[in-house]
């Protein structure tokens, strides 16, 4: 009888250990999944809150400077998210070509690009005179296209 009780005790302890391991793995996995869903929610909300508008005057001759080969764009934060005023946090395409030679200057006090603020983008990119061009700007998945004549 003693051997039966001992084996029952061993089986009981083993089943508890296995159940506890399964429970640990399960809660850990669900915890990670929950964290990922939370992060994704924050990302999506950031994307939805982001809205920028290229406010440059497309009809002006001064968008592109022939002598310096510079395109000057003004971008206004019309969303409700504070954005970093840094060129490396934006993607810019000039006539379909990804542009890395971009300088972003915040035209207001402070370091954060708050809603209502304007950033000047200076893009060093030579263009043929009197031709049509388009610039595409992507900030937090918000895409803006600006068309102008050089």
């Amino acid at each position: 009888m003693a051997s039966v009780s001992a084996s029952h005790l061993i089986l009981f302890i083993a089943s508890m250990v296995i159940a506890a391991s399964v429970a640990g793995v399960f809660t850990d996995t669900v915890g990670r999944l929950g964290q990922a869903i939370s992060d994704q929610g924050l990302d999506v909300s950031e994307n939805v809150r982001t809205d920028v508008e290229i406010i440059s005057d497309a009809g002006s001759d001064a968008v592109y400077n022939d002598s310096t080969g510079n395109i000057t764009l003004y971008v206004k934060n019309t969303g409700s998210e504070t954005l970093p005023a840094r060129a490396d946090r934006m993607d810019l395409f000039v006539d379909g070509i990804f542009e890395t030679n971009v300088e972003a200057t915040l035209l207001e006090d402070g370091v954060q690009w708050r809603p209502g603020g304007v950033v000047r983008l200076d893009i060093a990119h030579s263009l043929d005179p009197d031709t049509d061009h388009r610039v595409k700007l992507i900030v937090n998945a918000d895409e803006e296209v600006f068309k102008f004549r050089s």
């Binding site: 009981f12 089943s15 159940a19 429970a23 399960f26 809660t27 669900v30």
Partner: peptide, 22 residues
């Protein structure tokens, strides 16, 4: 009997906690 119901209780509690977190 104790082993099965004990394990089931632990798994059930874990599922309860997991559902709460999720």
């Amino acid at each position: 009997g104790f082993s099965v119901s004990g394990s089931a209780a632990i798994i059930f509690a874990a599922m309860f906690v997991g559902f709460g977190m999720f």
